[in-house]
Design a protein around this nucleic acid. Structure first.
Length: 311
DNA sequence: GCTCCTCCTAGTGAGCAGCA
DNA sequence: TGCTGCTCACTAGGAGGAGC
């Protein structure tokens, strides 16, 4: 992906809400793999010019300034031995600068979530001349005039393509709610979104209803799912599903993978790979960290017992 | 300290209603 | 009649308390 395509990709991934210029710099600095240029004033001006002359991008002025995006790394607090997130940092959830407000179906085929869809003002004509496409304001002038009210929004086609990837069928039709889920997952990039956070937080819908929203995304293989366990401040474990765009999918070991690995390693060391359930239970209790709960071990033993029985 | 039971949360398959 | 949108009943897993 070339330099300017990377910038457009970041704009498109931010969804129908669009991206403010300061947030764009944050996204580019955090991009994986890294943005190839140092983001100095010269580079920023170059990027601004490329955005302005791109006819697939539009510029809007929001009725109020939007805070910068705050990036978090949900995987930094994952216990490597258990695969469980062991932080309490998520109890102080940062303010959601992209509240869910699903845009209803419309004749223009615009899909996504945008709280200011009807109230934001199209200022593209103030930013660039129509023919030829040239900037009417420099980056510093734009920031001075609009500040954090200015957002860049990619066309529906660009946004959809950024979400579904190059190999998926662009003719796939998603419902408004399902599209917003996909948009939200895409905005999370490599971090992904927890299903529990989406239905309980952003979307405020019943888990059963959210399952229906997700159904079409799974059917068309637009998202991947991984088991995810988080230990809350209270010590309670919260099980959920981590949703990622296919392009951002990374294989991570779940706690069940780790349990099975320990079991497998133990059986490999036994004569004829055979062990009694009692011995296996004793071994697991010794090998597995305390942060695993007993019922979890019991579940695993049930699986192993079944395997031994049927073999 | 262990087991059993109950309650709660999260997720899913089946089936129903409405509509083209 | 088949598809879509939605709800309901159910399962799974974990926490916590009671009883031994």
């Amino acid at each position: 992906m070339d330099l300017l395509s990377i910038v457009v990709d970041e704009v498109a991934l931010e969804g129908l809400d669009g991206i403010t210029i300061p947030t764009l710099w944050i996204r580019l600095e955090d991009r994986q793999p890294g943005f190839p240029l140092k983001l100095d004033d010269c580079t920023k001006e170059l990027i601004w010019k490329s955005l302005v002359i791109n006819s697939d991008l539009l510029f809007y002025e929001l009725p109020e300034e939007r805070d910068d995006v705050v990036l978090t790394d949900r995987f930094k607090d994952i216990d490597a031995e258990t695969g469980i997130e062991v932080t309490d940092s998520f109890t102080d959830t940062p303010k959601d600068i992209y509240p869910i407000d699903v845009v209803p179906e419309n004749k223009d085929g615009i899909q996504g979530s945008c709280a200011f869809f009807k109230t934001r003002k199209d200022v593209t004509k103030q930013v660039r001349s129509k023919s030829p496409l040239t900037p009417l304001v420099s980056l510093s002038e734009a920031l001075e005039r609009y500040g954090r009210k200015l957002v860049v929004v990619a066309s529906q086609c660009l946004r959809y393509r950024a979400l579904i990837g190059s190999e998926s069928d662009p003719d796939v039709k998603l419902g408004s709610d399902s599209y917003c889920v996909l948009e939200r997952v895409g905005r999370a990039r490599w971090q992904g979104e927890l299903q529990r956070d989406l239905h309980g937080g952003s979307f405020r819908v019943d888990a059963r209803k959210f399952h229906y929203f997700r159904k079409s995304l799974v059917r068309y293989q637009l998202v991947t799912m991984q088991s995810y366990v988080r230990r809350m401040k209270t010590g309670q474990q919260q099980h959920s599903i981590l949703l990622l765009l296919k392009r951002f999918h990374v294989n991570r070991r779940t706690k069940y993978d780790i349990l099975m690995e320990v079991t497998s390693n133990f059986l490999q060391q036994c004569p004829n790979q055979f062990s009694t359930v009692i011995m296996l239970r004793e071994q697991l209790v010794v090998s597995i960290p305390l942060s695993f709960c007993r019922p979890c071990l019991s579940s695993l033993l049930l699986v192993v017992e079944s395997c031994l029985f049927f073999s």
